[in-house]
Design a protein around this nucleic acid. Structure first.
Lengths: 114, 114
DNA sequence: CAGTTTAATTACTCTATTGTTATTAAACAT
DNA sequence: ATGTTTAATAACAATAGAGTAATTAAACTG
C-alpha cells in the first residue's frame, strides 16, 4: 500500500517539458536579462553575444510554452516574462546549489584537518 | 542601469543542469515512486516497465547529482530521495500547469459562448 | 520607390541523451 | 563449487536539441 497516488504519464510528460525549458543556460540567461522589464530581440542579441536566429528561436520556444509574452512595435518585437514562478524556481535551485557547495567546502576542510 | 546583477555563466550552467535532471519523464516517475521511502532497483524496474539497465542508469545520474542516496544490502541496492526540494519544485510546476489548463478551458468556453 | 533595419524561418551540422541488448561483477543459496 | 539473483557497465542505434548561415518578411526611412 502506497499512500501516494501514481501520477499519470501525461502529467509527468508536461512537467518534464516545463523543466526542460529551464534546462538551457542560454534560456536562463535570457530570462535573467529580461527580469521585470520587457526587451526587444536586438537588445538581447547584443547582451548575449549569440546569433539573432538563436535568440529568436529560444524566445519562440518560451513564448509558445506560455512563460513569455510578445508585443510587436514597428520592426521590433518586445518580450516580457509572463510567468513569475520562473524566478521562484530559479532562486530555489540556486540557493540549494549554493548551500551544497558550502557544505562540500566544509567537508573538504574537515577531511584535511582545517 | 539594470538593478539586477548579471549571473555568472557557471551558475547558469549548474542551474540548467539541475533542471535537466527533472526534464525526463522516466526520472520524474522514479522520483514519484520513491516518495518518502527507499526502494531497490528491482522494485522500480517492476513498477516502471522499462529495462533494468535503464533504471540503473537514471538512478546513477540522480545519485551523482546528489538528489538520491544509495545503500547496498546483499545483492540489492536501495535508493532514497535526499533532496526534498524536488517535491516542492514538482508541485509548484504541476499546480501552475493545472491552473493554466483551467484558464484555457475557461477561455475556450468564453469564445464559444458558454 | 529603393534601401535599411529588425525579426522569423529554413536548412544544416554537431553534440548530447535516451533506451536497448549483452556482458560483467558481486552477493547469496544449494 | 555451481548456479542464481541483482545491479552496474559497455556498446550501440535512434532521437532530440543547440547553434550557425542564409533567406524571407515586414515595417520603417530617405
Amino acid at each position: 500500500m502506497n499512500s501516494v497516488k501514481s501520477v499519470p504519464s501525461e502529467v509527468l510528460q508536461q512537467v518534464a517539458e516545463y523543466f526542460s525549458l529551464l534546462s538551457e543556460p542560454m534560456r536562463l540567461r535570457l530570462l535573467n536579462l529580461l527580469g521585470d522589464d520587457e526587451k526587444c530581440v536586438q537588445e538581447l542579441v547584443e547582451a548575449t553575444q549569440t546569433s539573432q536566429a538563436n535568440v529568436s528561436k529560444h524566445l519562440k520556444i518560451m513564448w509558445q510554452a506560455g512563460i513569455l509574452t510578445r508585443r510587436s512595435a514597428g520592426t521590433s518585437a518586445y518580450y516580457r516574462i509572463e510567468d513569475d514562478m520562473i524566478f521562484e524556481l530559479c532562486s530555489l535551485v540556486r540557493d540549494r546549489l549554493a548551500t551544497r557547495i558550502e557544505q562540500q567546502a566544509l567537508h573538504f576542510r574537515v577531511v584535511n584537518g582545517k
